[in-house]
Amino acid sequence: MSNFEPEIVAFCCHYCAYTAADMAGTRRISYPSNVKIIRVPCTGKVDAIHLMKALEKGADGVYVAGCLDGDCHFKNGNLRATAHVEKIKKVLEDLGWEPERVAMMYFSAGMGEQFAQGAKEFTEKIKSLGPSPASQTVGKAV
């Protein structure tokens, strides 16, 4: 499984993490191409069903990247997203999946380097877990 290249979906807040990803690009800091970014107006918009659907359709890992605590443009969308991620972690445990396949991260718009680092670390973690059960059966849909 050494050549396993995971498919990873990252739901990124327009106001922080997405801009941090942009910042990483501007500064020519590379991060794994495994990470496919979906820009959202606020991570509070990312519901539990979006995380489940990503996994169902073959993503090996999914993370939500929102604003730092207290910095949400819409007051507490990042906290809502955190709750959704925690809920899905518990569901995955019940299903016998590794809960580490979903994660919550927090960045400010200026944290390009940290964004790239987070993407690298998450990709490494998913590589160590191996392909998800769904990605092996339904194929790559992301």
Binding site: M52, L55, D94, G96
Partner: peptide, 16 residues
């Protein structure tokens, strides 16, 4: 919403 979540969980469980 809960129908979607449960259905998704059932599918993931069956795959596993």
């Amino acid at each position: 919403k809960e129908v979607g979540l449960l259905s998704s969980a059932l599918r993931l469980h069956s795959v596993k």
